[in-house]
Design a protein around this nucleic acid. Structure first.
Lengths: 230, 230
DNA sequence: ATTTGTGAATCGGTTCACAGCG
DNA sequence: CGCTGTGAACCGATTCACAAAT
């Protein structure tokens, strides 16, 4: 392997490997096989090997991967060797929880500003950061070199928040608002959507209930349950 | 179309269509084409048509889809015609934010219990719900017919939380803890992982920076910038 | 003996393009 | 004529299976 372009699906799994490897390193593990890394990351070993092969040939046949070395390679690939400054837009329940979230810095993500439109919130402080005026977003992004915008507004305000982030020059947005955002092609957008996740669970839960109903020989009517017991 | 089994990718998009259709209905829109629904949901129209075709032939050629009828069909498919009771395990920053989150009930998801192991939190109330003892989980799940467990504990406690949910009979789990959970095959598991999302953004952000560096003719050295201005 | 790295086969999902129908 | 519904072609990602490396 020695081409550019790592598949999207692989990129999405690298953080998983990274986290597992961090745990290994803490336990003092020196080398790890694709099999054991796969277990830790909750995938299969063929996937691990194929994924890692996109980064280069960092394993040793018959032995496995050196934990420290692989950690370094993945962190370099993911851009975790530097810090990234983030701004949280919208300081409601969720925004506040995110601001307070330790382990945000679980590798170099620093919340350097909180902004909101609500006069009542501006000037108050949350987790040692002062809430600032949404209108100052452009200046804040420039001055503090913000590269990631976190949208934690209500749905109705999210597109506006995104537009302002984009025009301030932010090229990466993480959206927590329950709405579809439109951004230019050169801006990366990821979303975290609680109610969508719940609805997906609901689909499968319902399907299970439906299957159960078919399987079970309707034991609720007295006659039916009697007839099966002669 | 008239087979069972809706593709996973389709299931994951149904909530998106559902939300868009709800907005349409509020605006008083009667019918909608796959093209316009696609725009609202942020996908393309071929995908919309294929996805909806798995549910049945609910459109009218030359016209589009009836908004109300489609809403009903999707909500039935997603199991949104009934309420689902949820328990939140772990009442830290995130658990509290989730408990307070309005629009949780954005279609029938009701938080009926909060549990934690911390004696200091048990008995306190959060958003009109009393925090209860994690040890009572099994009883709570049974008594209140909880079908969805939301894990909002620290990483180290998450597997234990999941194990207890599973042994209490919960078959759907939404994990917010930054760790891989192991659950039996018959349990549905979804995860929401902030730091993974940030790391994915970081990857693409870094890649953009690397590209820029190649494009730009290193204007930081005085000699270089001078030589371009004769 | 063991485990990687990777072509080849396979699978699931997306997109194309148009026949079918209102 | 317009828009849906869907086979067929396509594409990316996963899995298989084994030769290569130590």
């Amino acid at each position: 392997m020695r081409e550019r372009a790592i598949p999207e699906a692989t990129v999405a799994r690298l953080p998983l490997y990274y986290r597992s490897l961090l745990e290994m390193a803490e336990h003092g593990t020196q080398t790890i096989s694709s099999e054991r890394l796969a277990d830790a990351a909750g995938v299969n070993s063929a996937k691990v090997r194929k994924d890692l092969s996109y980064l280069g040939s960092y394993g040793t046949r018959g032995v496995g991967y050196d934990v420290e070395y692989l950690l370094y390679q993945i962190s370099r690939e993911l851009g975790l060797t530097q810090d990234w400054n983030c701004v949280i837009v919208g300081v409601g329940n969720l925004g506040r929880a995110l601001a307070n979230y330790r382990g945000f810095g679980e590798r170099g993500f620093r919340v350097v500003a909180l902004v909101d439109i609500d006069e009542g919130k501006i000037g108050k402080s949350v987790d040692s950061l002062m809430v600032e005026d949404f209108d100052d977003l452009e200046r804040i992004v420039k001055e503090r070199q913000v590269s990631i915008g976190i949208v934690a507004t209500p749905a109705g305000a999210a597109q506006d928040a995104a537009d302002r982030l984009v025009s301030a020059g932010v090229k990466s947005i993480l959206n927590f608002a329950p709405t579809v955002l439109q951004v230019p092609d050169d801006v990366s957008l990821r979303k975290v959507d609680l109610s969508i996740e719940l609805q997906i669970l609901s689909f499968y839960e319902q399907r299970k209930a439906a299957l159960d109903a078919v399987r079970r020989p309707r034991r609720l009517t007295a006659s039916a349950s009697k007839s099966t017991r002669p």
